[in-house]
Design a protein around this nucleic acid. Structure first.
Lengths: 222, 222
DNA sequence: CACATTATTCATACGTGTTATGATTATAGG
DNA sequence: CCTATAATCATAACACGTATGAATAATGTG
């Protein structure tokens, strides 16, 4: 790699790190392009040259932390359906540990303000991981045979993204996140499942429902 | 109503109309608070007094046009499930006729930039309409008896909102909107349905799947 | 090594949503 | 009719994301 590309990669790294740290320290309040640029010791224009927009930077941060805890990919579970919900639980566990950080991240990532017109919220690796799970489930006969798994996966992603959006817009608490996404996943997966596999998913559905109803009652009391 | 409140309501009306017309004529490019205020013949500060934020104005516009075509609420169908998909079709038909208008609307409405932290994307009337449909479906035995309809409705709304977001972010074409939301609805409803009602929903699922696969192939060819 | 090219950074400016500040107007109550 | 008051007004300011052209650094070639 040339010296130029090297320096560029270094700047990129510094910018992502600066954004990550700023979110960690000050929340979304202190996350301005000027602050990011100053912290990364680059000019205000440089992040635009290297990333294109603020949203792209935030998405890079999101990918950065994701890579970190995508290790659960090699978890071994007998049932692929079980693995889906297990992965969900692990993933959202990080959110519960550091809600301010992730809420800011998603808030900026879902910001439709710009003109770029690309989501890029799902990487090829993540796609491959989930797709493999669905393929396995379908081969096991758990899912409808003639269902397009690409569309099913897209639907699950929609549920996930929508829940993040609801969280960001204030319609959801952190402790409701897992149950909310889980309920949506269970609904969709039961809808995609063959009769034999439905009871197990239905059980999860009811579990998440209990959690959500409980936290809703608690919210009404307050 | 006092004369003062009357004048206030008038200004409110003018502001919403100004925003609506500006979106219609210039898209999101010309939709600035200064332009809205000028067009409504009010000061820049007045919209903030009456609505609080730009997003609130846009949501008011969204409600305004919704009221206009909420007449399908009194459509009579035998099957409540059928009515759900029929309402969906009618609703998204308007979007297909005027995509730029609605895309701008949703783009601004989903903008999480502000600090307000309230979604307000669903009004009591809309909620009541959909809830009545679901109650009827459950009483007919179509849906699982012990399923919380509030949560199901919330899930359907998440699918809808997420699809709008995907549209806004550029991951979806206008002509894919109905099939995309429909696929998600069918998945969730089949997941919420009793065995007897599942075949009918499954048929819809496959229909939407065919549409989506077709338009995806067409997109790949280009 | 020196030079011309080109990629990258820089300082600056623009338009945005939003808020603050007094002045000004129109309404409500006596 | 007159005063108190609530609303709007014009204006300026703030911080933000982004666009632009000038300045600067690294690169490949003679």
């Amino acid at each position: 790699m040339s010296q130029r590309e090297d320096a560029k990669a270094e700047r990129r790294r510094r910018i992502v790190a600066a954004a990550r740290d700023l979110i960690r320290e000050t929340g979304d309040a202190g996350l301005s392009m000027r602050a990011i640029a100053a912290r990364a010791h680059v000019s205000l224009t440089t992040p635009y040259n290297l990333f294109g927009s603020k949203r792209a930077i935030v998405i890079a941060v999101l990918e950065d932390v994701r890579e970190f805890h995508d290790r659960f990919s090699n978890l071994r579970h007998t049932d692929p359906i079980d693995r889906i919900f297990h992965a969900l639980r692990l993933s959202l566990g990080y959110y519960a540990e550091d809600p301010d950080f992730y809420r800011t991240l998603w808030s900026e990532a879902l910001n439709p303000g710009g003109k770029e017109l690309r989501s890029e919220l799902i990487t090829p690796q993540r796609y491959a991981f989930w797709w493999a799970l669905l393929v396995e489930a379908q081969r096991d006969g758990a899912l409808l045979a003639d269902l397009d798994l690409d569309l099913l996966l897209r639907s699950l992603d929609l549920v996930f993204g929508a829940t993040m959006l609801a969280w960001v817009l204030g319609g959801l608490q952190v402790d409701e996140l897992e149950a909310s996404v889980g309920f949506g996943y269970a609904l969709a997966l039961r809808g995609a499942a063959n009769p034999d596999s439905q009871p197990g998913i239905e059980k999860r559905l009811k579990t998440y429902q209990r959690q959500l109803v409980r936290s809703r009652k608690k919210a009404q009391a307050a």
